[in-house]
Simulated scan of single mutants.
Amino acid sequence: MTTLWYTRCPVPTASGLAHRLGWLADELGEVGVLQDAPPEIARHHFDHDLPGLFREGGNVPALAARSEGARTRLIGLTWIEEAQSVLVRPDSGIAGAAGLRGARFALSRWAATRAESFPRAMALHGAKGALGQGGLTLDAVEFVEVEQPPGEWSWPGLAELTAGAVDAVYVKGARAAEQAVAAGAVVAVDLDAHPDPATRVNNGTPRPITVHEDLLAERPDLVVRFLVQTLRAADWAAGDLAGVRRILAGETRSGAAGVRAAYRDGFHTRLRPDLSPERLDLLGLQKDFLLEHGFLAADVDVAAWAAHEPLERAREILAERAVA
């Protein structure tokens, strides 16, 4: 049998909870964690060229890989609000989305590949969402390219914001929330506060779960069993906020304050993946944006990418267990 691997981003995911709780190992046997693998294996987090890989992570690498011919299938989508905002210096005079007109906005440089350029894609789409709230478009700001700081956990643009080299920077998540406090930055635009979720479409919203199509074709039972434990972990999370926060502190490498600041009340009740038309449409918005701005090698048919059967079967199995 193909060696099974699992990879995820440092964010709240039901599959990540299932992994941390030991349920994936109990269900599937030994599962290698890509983040702990040698570089020649770990790189497949971005290209998904590994037949036994389950991936739950940002949609930029997943869509970029698919656009370049990666033989993957989409088996679930999640939507977790992750404190997306645009930060400024407290003395900037910028207040609200309309105040960003003319601002110097931090934009990560292109990385070695499209998939690895997700920080640039995030900043660009975050800027679009924020500016749109003020009736502005991307040409209303001056983008200033910034380097990815040393260390994978440092948010690009914050150092430049503190130094006065840029006026605004997009951030999201627990670790960035902690770093923003340390930098003395303040929120100019709270993207989470807007009622339209389309304004928050970005790398992690919605977040895809993908598998290699060979694994799905040859061992669909393993894919279903992975999803059973993922759904089970989502149900567990809904009833144990304290437990979820403890695990997330490790997943995100942030303290309790960062987790509390980054994730809105009730987030732990909404970790179940689905492939609803609404989420597929939101992923389609992200795909269109990435294609327009050069992050995809070719168009991706999101509807054809999705494989609905494994998630439907996993739900059936859990429902059967509930009445047994």
Results as ranks from 00 to 15, higher is better:
I75V: 14
D299S: 15
S15V: 06
Q229D: 06
P90L: 04
L74Q: 03
L318I: 09
L131Q: 13
I94V: 15
P277N: 08
E309C: 03
L50V: 07
S117K: 07
A324S: 08
P206N: 13
F226P: 00
W236E: 13
I94D: 12
A168F: 09
T3C: 04
I209E: 10
R272E: 15
F295A: 09
V171N: 02
G173W: 05
R120F: 14
A163K: 14
E292L: 11
R73T: 02
K287I: 00
R225L: 00
D214K: 12
A307T: 04
H194W: 11
T252G: 08
I75L: 07
P310T: 06
L283Q: 00
R8P: 00
D240F: 07
V186Q: 06
R207V: 12
W236R: 09
H212N: 15
P208L: 10
V86P: 02
D214C: 08
R313C: 03
A238E: 14
L100A: 11
M1L: 07
D192Y: 02
K128E: 14
A182H: 12
A37E: 13
V302F: 06
K287W: 01
G16T: 14
G157V: 05
R114E: 10
H293C: 11
D299Y: 11
E278N: 05
S276D: 04
V228F: 05
T199Q: 14
A130L: 14
L215N: 10
L53F: 03
V86I: 15
I247Q: 13
V146G: 00
I94T: 14
M1T: 09
E309R: 07
R71P: 07
A249D: 12
I209R: 07
L77E: 02
L161D: 14
L318P: 00
H308Y: 09
A159Q: 09
A180G: 13
A193R: 12
R71F: 08
R246L: 14
T7E: 14
E218G: 08
G243Y: 11
K128C: 05
G58E: 08
A257Q: 13
A234S: 15
A303R: 12
C9R: 02
D240L: 07
T78E: 03
V60K: 01
I75A: 01
R315S: 08
D281Y: 03
L136A: 09
L271F: 02
Y170L: 05
A140T: 04
H293D: 11
A238I: 12
S108F: 00
E147Q: 13
P277R: 11
L4W: 01
E316Q: 12
E152Q: 14
D265S: 15
I247K: 07
V300W: 05
L34Y: 08
G284W: 01
A177M: 04
D139M: 03
L222H: 04
V11P: 02
S117N: 09
L231A: 11
Q133T: 15
G266W: 12
R279K: 10
D139Y: 02
P206K: 14
P119Y: 07
W23R: 14
A83D: 15
W110G: 01
F105V: 01
R315L: 10
A62I: 03
A217V: 10
L282E: 01
G239A: 15
A111Y: 01
P197Y: 10
E178W: 00
A183I: 13
R260D: 14
N203M: 06
W23N: 06
V323G: 08
